[in-house]
Amino acid sequence: MSPIRGVVGVSAYGKNDWYNNPPWKHTSQSEFDISNVTKLPRVDIVFADEDMEPDLISASVNAGAKGIVIAGVGNGNMNKVSVDAAARAVKKGVVVVRSSRVATGMVDRNVEVNDDELGFIASDELNPQKSRILLSLALLTPESSSQIQQLFRTY
């Protein structure tokens, strides 16, 4: 279900009824292979608010997170001290995805935050939960920041 694009279909009583065919890659079209995966990389979700402290981002990094999804306000935004903490996380090799905790809308690159300069990934239409799953899969194979960003545009 996407609040922007509507219901893809309904699965009930052992039957699938499809209303729309999603334009993105999914299921058997995916390049991800988890057949030999026993554990996904750690990816934390940090919920942002107007006066959030940066210590939750730092705690995720210190606990070994390979990725952090910021469930930001509006366009995946957070306050300045948290942007700075997220940028420090990127410099330590942690992938940071800006997502949004609001019900609709998308998080696009370089809108209000300079993702190119800071090394952040924009989640496009994926909410924090879906962003966490996609980032966990993307981290199974070493990818560049631009390749990970392309995955968020593809799925």
Rank of each mutant, 00 (worst) to 15 (best):
A85T: 06
V113E: 08
G93Q: 13
D116Q: 09
L140A: 02
N79M: 07
E112N: 12
R88S: 06
V90Q: 12
L126V: 10
G105F: 00
G119H: 14
A59G: 05
S100K: 03
L151T: 06
R132V: 07
V107E: 05
V107R: 01
F152A: 12
V90S: 12
F152M: 08
V102Q: 13
N62R: 00
I57T: 10
S60H: 00
A138C: 15
K92H: 02
K92C: 01
L135K: 02
A86S: 15
A122L: 04
G64F: 09
V61T: 03
S145P: 03
L151I: 01
K91S: 15
M78T: 15
S60P: 03
E117A: 12
M78Q: 13
I68V: 11
D108P: 01
L139I: 00
V69L: 01
A85L: 07
V83F: 11
S136E: 15
A87S: 12
L139E: 02
G93E: 12
S99W: 04
L126M: 15
V107M: 08
V97Q: 03
G93T: 10
G72K: 04
Q147I: 04
Q129P: 00
V90H: 10
N77G: 15
V97P: 02
K80P: 15
P142D: 13
N77A: 12
K80V: 14
R98W: 05
T154P: 03
Q147H: 06
N77F: 11
E125I: 14
A87V: 00
F120A: 14
K92F: 04
A103C: 09
E117I: 00
Q149E: 06
A63Q: 05
R109K: 12
M78F: 11
I133K: 15
S60A: 15
P142A: 10
K80F: 13
V90G: 04
E117R: 11
L151Y: 04
A86H: 06
S100N: 07
S131P: 09
D115W: 04
R101I: 06
R153L: 14
I133E: 14
A138F: 06
R132G: 02
T104M: 13
D116W: 07
K92G: 01
L151V: 00
I121E: 06
I70V: 15
E112V: 12
L135G: 03
Q129Y: 14
G74D: 14
A86L: 05
N77R: 13
K66H: 08
N77S: 15
V81K: 07
E112K: 02
G67Y: 03
I121L: 05
S144P: 09
L139V: 12
R109G: 08
G74T: 02
D124N: 11
V111F: 12
N127A: 10
E143V: 03
S131W: 04
T104C: 10
D115M: 08
V111S: 00
V111E: 10
A59F: 12
S144D: 11
A87I: 01
L139F: 07
Y155K: 09
N79V: 04
S123R: 07
K66C: 02
V83W: 11
I68P: 11
T154H: 06
